[in-house]
């Protein structure tokens, strides 16, 4: 973005602060995002137990309610599941999987969408038509259903979930970038760059990209929370990540079997963390959207 923004990093920080100042919910959301990211990052250090180490699990610890003490003396704040796994530890590790899958799929989807959107703008003609009709095709399906049907074909696994989610994400970004890019193409700086004999690729990435990217950046947080929910839903339905690297959705699904017998903690704890994570991202996303659209801001 260095081509278009000439501010110092301090200027950028001030601008960032101005977006969130006076919006306590959005600030709380930001704090939540930082907190959850840190917990996910340092789960192996923070978690009281390694939930994947089979040798450390004791079947005698199975289905203990919250605040129980395990056989080896550690306190289980959120209780245990059927195989004696500490829910708190499992949730910390589950956040890693959930966040990882969501971030990678959104990253891949946005990257592919932005590049294809730019290519559609630069090339036009049948290339544009093919890209945009393909985008229409993917967008005509609701995200979770598309991913579900794709996973039926691909089979389950974290890599396949990422692929299926990215396929749902690229189209929206391609559309956005194309819409903004088309209006940018009419501006003088592009004509000047062309006259100066600058190559297509350089125009695309150095001139068009920085000026067409901001609407995409505004929807990225919403895409991430959407991907977290989609992954959780798919894993809950049993077509998502494998049992060996349980995400929050899979942990909730495990607890589902014990819900009717009143053992609520197995499903409720990972679900609450999931909601808090998604909510943190959504309030920040709402703030960014309102900030980017002053008309809405004035009205609400």
């Amino acid at each position: 973005m260095s081509e278009t923004t000439f501010e110092s990093s301090a200027g950028r920080f001030d601008r960032f602060r101005a977006v969130f100042a006076g919006y306590p919910a959005a600030v709380a959301g930001l704090i939540g995002i930082v907190l959850f990211s840190l917990i996910a990052l340092f789960a192996p250090v923070l978690a009281p137990q390694d939930p994947f180490d089979q040798s450390r699990l004791d079947i005698m610890d199975g289905l203990l309610p919250p605040m129980s003490t395990l056989m080896d003396g550690t306190l289980s704040v959120l209780g245990t599941d059927a195989v004696g796994r500490d829910i708190l530890s499992a949730v910390m590790y589950g956040m890693r999987t959930s966040l990882f899958v969501a971030l990678v799929s959104v990253g891949a989807g946005v990257a592919v969408g932005v590049v294809l959107g730019l290519v559609a703008v630069m090339r036009g003609g049948w290339i544009d038509a093919v890209i945009m009709r393909t985008a229409d095709l993917t967008l005509s399906f609701p995200g979770v259903l598309l991913a579900l049907l794709l996973l039926v074909v691909f089979g389950s696994g974290a890599d396949k979930v990422i692929l299926a989610l990215a396929i749902g994400i690229w189209a929206q970004n391609a559309r956005l970038v194309r819409a903004v890019g088309l209006s940018e193409m009419k501006k003088d700086y592009i004509a000047a760059a062309r006259l100066a004999g600058i190559g297509q690729l350089r125009i695309m990435f150095h001139f068009l990209l920085p000026n067409a990217i901001s609407p995409v950046l505004v929807i990225v947080p919403m895409a991430i929370s959407g991907a977290i929910v989609a992954e959780a839903t798919l894993s809950f339905l049993g077509v998502g990540v494998p049992i060996t690297e349980p995400s929050l959705g899979l942990l909730i699904s495990n607890g589902n079997d014990y819900l009717l017998s009143g053992r609520w903690w197995i499903s409720v704890a990972p679900g609450l963390v999931l909601v808090m994570m998604v909510l943190s991202i959504n309030v920040v996303a709402d703030r960014l959207r309102d900030h980017a659209n002053p008309y809405l801001q004035a009205r609400t």
């Binding site: 929370s225 929910v229 959780a232 839903t233 809950f236 339905l237 959705g249 909730i252 607890g255 589902n256 819900l259 499903s267 679900g271 999931l274 909601v275 998604v278 909510l279 959504n282």
Partner: peptide, 9 residues
């Protein structure tokens, strides 16, 4: 922000 399936549970 509440996933449909968890809300159902």
């Amino acid at each position: 922000s509440i996933p449909n399936f968890w809300q159902a549970l």
